[in-house]
Design a protein around this nucleic acid. Structure first.
Lengths: 230, 230
DNA sequence: CGATTGTCAATTGTCGACAATCGACAAATT
DNA sequence: AATTTGTCGATTGTCGACAATTGACAATCG
C-alpha cells in the first residue's frame, strides 16, 4: 500500500500469491458467486498449475473470510447472508470511527488536504457521470482514512473487512441514486476532521456508513443466486 | 467456542489443523520467541510429517499475524515491537467497547449473570493466589464479552487480536501486583452493564484495557532476546 | 585494495502420485 | 418396506522428489 514506486522492478511473486490475487479478484468482483464450489482439481487445471500453491491460496482466502473450507468436503465461496452484511457494516463503522479519531488526534493539516483532494476527484468523476470511477475513488477515500490513522493492525483488519465490502457492492443490484450526492456526502466529514470536531465527525461517519449498510441489507435477498445448475 | 459437547467424538482434524494448533500454542505461550526462524524442514522432521501440511499451517499463522513469511527467505515468529503492543491494545479497546455497547443494547439479564459468574470464579481463584488460573479466567471473561455481543465478524477479528495479547502476556515478566485487585477491577464494568449505563461502561472498559496496555508497553524492551548466537 | 561478478549451499516453491475421507447409492437383512 | 450395512466415485489430504530463488562468500578484474 505504501510501495516506494521504485521504477524498474519486475514482479516475481510466488505462484501462490499470483493465484491468490486472481481468485480474490474473481470473488470480490462477483465473478465467483457466493455458494459456488471451488474444486481444486478443476481450478488447478484451469490455471495450469498444481494443487499445492492453489491450496495455499485457498487457505489465505478462508482467513480473509471469502471462502469456506470444510475438511474433506471442499471449498465454496462463502455465502453472504443479510446478517453477514449487517455485521460487516457495523464493524466497518467501528473501525472507521477509530481511524477518524486517531486522525483528528494527530491534527496534521496534510491529512485533511489529502482527503480533500480525494474528494475533489470523486466529485469530478461524479459530475462526468462515471459511476465506476466514483466507486473506485470512494473506496480509495475510505482506504485513505484508514491509512492516515497510522495503525498497522487496524489497516490489516480493515483490509479483510474491505474486501468483503467490495464483494457486497459488486453483488448488489446498484441502486445508484444521485451520483453526485455520493460525493457530496463526504465533504462534511472532511470538514469536521479539519475542525477537529470529533463528536461531529464521529456522528457523520457512522451515519454515512450505517445508512448505506442498512440500505443494502434491507434489499438483500438471502440465498439469491442458485448457481446455474438446477 | 460453542461446541455442543456431544460426548463420544474422536478428533479427526486434518493434519494441518493439528499442526496449526501445536505451532500456535508454541508461539502464543512464548515457547517460540519472536524473531525465531521457523525452518520448514526442521519442524517437519521434528513433527514427523511432510512439509505440505506444515506450510499450510504456516500460512494460517501468518494471517493471524503470529509469523512473518518472506518469499524464498523463510518464516520467523513475528517480532513484537512496542508499537505493535500499543496498536494491539488500542484496537482491543475499540473491539471490546463495541462488544460492550451491543451487550447493553441487547439488555438481557442472562448476559450480566454470566459475566458476574465469571467474575466470581476469578475472585475465588485470586483469593487462593492461583495466578495462572486468574489469568485464564481473565481471558475467558474478555472472550465472553465478545461472545455475548453476538457478532460473528467481531468474534473472528477478536480471535486474532486475542492470540497476540496472549503472546504478549506470556512474554512479559509478569509484574503482578495485587492479584485480587485484578479481579476487583472487573466488577464495576459488570455493574455498569447491568445498569445499562453505556457511557460509564465504555469509560471503564477503555481505562481497564489501556491502563494494562500502557503498563506493558512502557516496560517493553524492543528487540529483547537476541537469539543465542551473537 | 575496492568493487564487481560468479559460484554455491541452504531454503523455499512447485509438482505429480498416492492415501484417506466423505456422501450417496445399492444391497442385504429383519 | 424400513433400516442397516457395504461399496463406490469424487474430492481432498499427504507425501517425497525436484526446480527455483536467495544471500553469502569466493574469485576476478580494474
Amino acid at each position: 500500500m505504501t510501495q516506494p514506486s521504485n521504477s524498474l522492478h519486475i514482479e516475481n511473486k510466488p505462484l501462490r500469491e499470483r493465484v491468490l490475487d486472481v481468485l480474490r479478484e474473481a470473488i470480490v468482483s462477483g465473478e465467483f458467486k457466493p455458494g459456488q464450489p471451488l474444486v481444486e482439481m478443476d481450478i488447478a487445471a484451469q490455471l495450469g498449475i498444481s494443487r499445492a500453491p492453489l491450496r495455499e491460496a485457498l487457505q489465505f482466502l478462508s482467513h480473509e473470510g471469502l471462502v469456506e473450507v470444510t475438511p474433506y468436503r471442499g471449498t465454496v465461496v462463502k455465502p453472504l447472508t443479510r446478517t453477514d452484511i449487517e455485521e460487516l457494516y457495523s464493524l466497518r463503522s467501528v473501525l472507521e470511527t477509530f481511524a477518524l479519531q486517531r486522525i483528528i488526534a494527530q491534527n496534521q493539516p496534510e491529512n485533511v488536504a489529502q482527503l480533500r483532494q480525494c474528494y475533489e476527484e470523486m466529485l469530478a468523476a461524479a459530475q462526468v457521470g462515471d459511476l465506476k470511477l466514483v466507486n473506485n475513488i470512494d473506496r480509495q477515500f475510505h482506504d485513505l482514512l484508514i491509512d492516515l490513522s497510522q495503525h498497522g493492525l487496524l489497516t490489516a483488519t480493515w483490509n479483510t473487512v474491505s474486501l468483503r465490502v467490495r464483494q457486497v457492492m459488486a453483488l448488489r443490484n446498484r441502486k445508484n441514486r444521485d451520483i453526485t450526492q455520493i460525493a457530496y456526502n463526504h465533504l462534511p466529514i472532511i470538514e469536521a476532521i479539519g475542525q477537529a470536531d470529533e463528536p461531529l465527525a464521529t456522528r457523520l461517519i457512522q451515519e454515512h456508513i450505517s445508512s448505506s449498510g442498512d440500505l443494502i441489507a434491507e434489499l438483500w435477498d438471502d440465498v439469491p443466486p442458485e448457481d446455474g445448475q438446477s
